[in-house]
Design a protein around this nucleic acid. Structure first.
Length: 586
RNA sequence: GCGGCGGUCGUCUAGCCUGGUCUAGGACGCCGGCCUUCCAAGCCGGAGAUCCCGGGUUCAAAUCCCGGCCGCCGCACCA
């Protein structure tokens, strides 16, 4: 099989100090990675690019918040994670294969056994003599795996169980009402969050691809199902195609995705939520901007049994990678009203949105009126007690008492009151506003996986050298500066340029070795532009700018340097703006 | 968790089978010096290794044995 690109990229990334395994001096710990300075720069650039695509460009209706990682257990009871993030595994005593205990039982007995504890599963296995489906050996004890990290809040409160969040989403759901109010109760509304999450994976083995702690970038996008207001989908997502491998296709065993525009996919019912489609459209553009060309990523619809408990429809955005064929970089879940409903149920909080109706809804309800004058006349000085009795009884209850009592009188607080004092009427009310639970579509990205993707797609081997072809926007170091040879006065000039550029960018100043070696070093770090100071620079007060991928250079007056670098870093073609282009010095 | 394979300067590795000559050799990289006017030239010098950890066998362990840790591959897991 040979060494895969993954190994090469990771070797390279470790060597250059992008990342390395955490807790090395104690032997390391699987599922955790540290970032070095290049890694931090790259990750921050990716996060900021995500912010640009998903938040800044939608700032009228997408709002970023930040909420804690440590979360009281009640939140994940409500969200369903406490129940659904638990796996029950059982091992065959004979062949040592491991199976999901619940899956085995459900298959064999054809019943749903959600939420049963380990002892019950074990009992079911024994009672029904369920054996290993491969070798028919006896099965061992059922073991429980909780994929949430547990902790306790406060030193004296071991009963205050808490979890590290496995997704940032719950922080957004919990804050829905507050942000909705801040946004002047307008939908659609996106709440975005970027932060650390933790999942206690059983055996993470794919380096930075599968971590126990990672950075998630999510939007919970709330909208009115009856009025999605998703014009953007038709404004921006009708031309460009995305690739989708539908659940139907997968069930038929097909693996060739269809090519369709997001707007079309929604119209055809392939994507069930317009906003899910819109964010998939943006996600596709975003992945392109990280250096993944069209055709190298697609959306895979999850089968119903593969979906998370909260999702009505899920697409995983897959990017083609050398080692595993593809890797999931984002999940797009149509969470619908599930989470808000659950939090309303558990917290009793009002997490409803309001909808203005075009025509008022007429609501009929029964009302009880009573004759104040008659009460005064009948009860005289005791009227006050009667009013109190009536007011402290709820309308529903009063209605029940009146309708269920035979005869002409009812008894309230030991006071006998004639029925004819009450008048039961049907009133019609017009409602212009309606409460409802908004629907949610969620795009969710893992930052570290994107880092790996960016590295793998940037990684190029040219003869015996490595060039990292990062898009300028995410390149950790933006500019290099070097004297052509390490002699004065070139060094002095180069250092001056370095000092100026440092004000604006991360810059690498290079001395030592030959010019070829310096360029190679800069290419290896993915630096998009390198500025060389030669002897002509001294006499003409200008510099050369070399572009990483083409190796071509232009000669630019010193005074224009910043302007040109800025253009270059913003994806303008610096070779077509009029400065002399040098294909190659010899 | 189970099974297979592996772990030696920063990196890649020689040595392990057949214990001693290994105060562990080399290359790349790094540091210092010389040289160098455009794509990883050359020369000189230097620093750099708990041989993964612990225990055992032995006069003697990088080398043999046991346990542990970590990694890779397969089973399983991966909302």
């Amino acid at each position: 099989m040979g060494i895969s690109k993954y190994e090469k990229v990771i070797d390279y990334a470790i060597k250059k100090g992008f990342l390395w395994q955490s807790y090395e001096i104690y032997g390391g710990q699987a599922g955790f990675y540290d970032l070095g300075f290049l890694g931090v720069l790259l990750k921050n650039n990716i996060i900021n690019l995500w912010r640009e695509f998903f938040i800044r460009r939608h700032q009228e209706f997408v709002i970023e918040i930040e909420t804690p990682v440590i979360t009281p257990s009640i939140v994940f009871k409500a969200s369903g994670h406490e129940e659904n993030f638990t796996d029950y595994a059982v091992e065959c005593m004979q062949c040592h294969r491991i199976f999901r205990a619940d899956h085995l039982i459900e298959e064999k007995l054809n019943v749903s056994i959600e939420g049963l504890p380990a002892e019950d599963l074990e009992r079911l296995i024994n009672e029904n003599n369920i054996r290993c489906p491969i070798c028919n050996g006896m099965l061992g004890n059922v073991k429980k795996f909780l994929l949430l990290f547990q902790t306790y809040i406060g030193p004296y409160s071991p009963e205050n169980l808490a979890y590290l969040r496995p997704e940032a989403a719950q922080g957004m759901f919990i804050n829905f009402k507050r942000v909705y109010d801040l946004a002047r109760r307008r939908l659609p509304l996106g709440i975005a969050q970027i932060g650390k999450v933790a999942r206690n994976e059983i055996s993470p083995r794919q380096g930075p691809i599968r971590l126990r702690e990672f950075t998630i970038m999510e939007i919970e996008f709330f909208y009115d199902e009856t009025n999605p207001s998703c014009d953007l989908l038709y404004d921006y997502c009708t031309e460009e195609k995305i690739l989708i491998l539908t659940a139907e296709q997968r069930q038929r065993g097909e693996d060739k995705p269809i090519s369709i525009s997001p707007a079309e996919a929604f119209n055809d019912g392939i994507i069930k939520s317009p906003w899910l489609a819109y964010w998939m459209c943006i996600s596709n553009k975003f992945i392109n901007a990280l250096g993944v060309p069209n055709g190298y990523s697609y959306f895979e619809e999850k089968l119903p049994n593969e979906r998370a408990h909260y999702s009505k429809q899920t697409f995983d955005q897959m990017v083609v990678v050398d080692k595993w064929g593809r890797v999931e970089v984002s999940g797009h879940a149509y969470r619908h009203t599930y989470d808000l409903e659950r939090h309303i149920m558990f917290s009793k909080a009002d997490l409803y949105a309001l909808r203005q109706l075009k025509t008022p809804k007429t609501i009929k309800r029964i009302d009880i009126q009573y004759d104040k004058m008659a009460i005064l006349k009948t009860f005289g000085s005791r009227a006050g007690e009667v009013f109190k009795a009536i007011l402290t009884t709820s309308k529903d209850e009063l209605l029940k008492i009146i309708s269920s009592t035979q005869g002409d009188n009812i008894v309230l607080n030991n006071i006998t009151i004639p029925k004819n004092i009450f008048n039961i009427v049907e009133v019609e009310e017009q409602q212009w506003v309606e409460r409802f639970i908004p629907s949610v579509s969620e795009p969710s990205f893992g930052a570290e996986r994107l880092m790996y993707i960016a590295l793998e797609y940037a990684y190029n081997e040219q003869e015996d050298r490595i060039v990292l072809r990062f898009p300028a926007k995410i390149a950790p170091i933006k500019v290099g500066v070097t004297p052509l040879v390490d002699r004065e006065p070139l060094k002095q000039f180069a250092r001056k340029v370095y000092e100026i550029l440092k004000e604006h960018y991360y810059v690498l100043y290079i001395e030592g070795g030959t010019i070829g070696k310096k360029y190679a070093l800069a290419d290896e770090l993915g630096i998009p532009f390198i500025i060389t100071i030669d002897y002509d620079s001294i006499s003409n007060n200008d510099v050369t700018i070399r572009e990483r991928d083409s190796k071509r250079q232009i000669r630019v007056p010193f005074s224009d340097l910043l302007k040109v670098i800025n253009l270059g870093l913003n994806n303008h073609d610096i070779f077509s703006i009029g400065y002399p282009v040098i294909e190659y010095y010899s």
